[in-house]
């Protein structure tokens, strides 16, 4: 019997398969992300974590399957979703300021051909303030540190005023202060009923950051509350024969008790 995907589920993925050059990257993904979770997607390199996000957002073609946002196709629900791409996915040498990038989050509301107005810049500035770098608004983006660039991306998502946040490695290579700022922000979003799903690579912080976990290695190994899914057994199934990771896993599990 097929699993159910009721319409109150923010992200319901049904039998999703994605293949690059005939090689499947994701196999028969069937997944419900419950409302209001702060979720992490973890798995080894090449497990298809980013691909799962991108396929859900129609950024890459699906070989089969569908993704429903509150029971409707993604195209009809764009306003509900904010996407934070990987930081390396853009050219940070681009001649724009931090404020300009965040303002891009309002372009959809502004619409075709219309100019950016002061109220849109004010919204963007507010979002920059929320991530703690309003004082850097005018700075060109190449002159920001990695952590600050990540915060700019986050602010751009905030300004969209979405209900679901999909983030690709927001914690990758950021400084400790930024990590703390981001997790505080995500927990705040979460407490306001928003659903957050992050691709994440650092097993040591999983239990501290996320209350929901998707363990992924081309297929779903486990999906559920972190306390139930973050087990030695599941991690071994996810990371398989990558023995050098076993120590990490033991360490990560050790952190669970904290």
């Amino acid at each position: 019997m097929l699993p159910e995907h009721p319409p109150e589920i923010p992200i319901a993925i049904h039998d999703l398969t994605v293949a690059y050059h005939r090689k499947p990257v994701l196999w028969d993904i069937d997944l419900n992300i419950p409302k209001g979770v702060l979720g992490g997607i973890v798995g080894p390199n090449g497990a298809g974590k980013s691909t799962l996000l991108k396929a859900s957002l129609n950024l890459i073609p699906k070989t089969s399957g569908e993704v429903l946002i509150y029971g409707k196709p993604y195209q009809e629900q764009r306003d509900l979703i904010a996407y934070v791409p990987q930081r390396e996915s853009v050219d940070w040498d681009f001649p724009v300021s931090a404020l300009d990038v965040v303002t891009m989050g309002t372009y959809r509301k502004i619409g075709w051909f219309k100019r950016i107005q002061k109220k849109h810049k004010d919204l963007a500035l507010e979002a920059l303030d929320q991530v703690g770098i309003a004082h850097l608004a005018k700075r060109q983006i190449s002159q920001l540190s990695g952590g600050q660039q990540q915060r700019v991306f986050l602010a751009r998502a905030l300004v969209q005023d979405a209900d679901i946040f999909l983030m690709d490695e927001p914690f990758a290579a950021v400084d400790a202060a930024t990590e703390e700022a981001i997790i505080t922000l995500l927990k705040d979003l979460n407490s306001r009923g928003k659903t957050v799903l992050c691709v994440h690579h650092d097993l040591a912080t999983v239990s501290r950051f996320f209350d929901h976990l998707v363990l992924l290695n081309m297929r779903i190994v486990a999906n559920g509350p972190t306390l139930e899914t973050f087990t030695r057994d599941n991690l071994q199934k996810t990371y398989g024969g990558k023995l050098n990771l076993l120590e990490d896993i033991a360490h990560a599990l050790g952190n669970l008790g904290k």
Partner: peptide
């Protein structure tokens, strides 16, 4: 703004 958006971050533009 449309040209800028597509030049800077095509994926983001397309999710919008």
């Amino acid at each position: 703004k449309e040209f800028t958006l597509v030049c800077f971050d095509q994926n983001f533009a397309s999710t919008q």
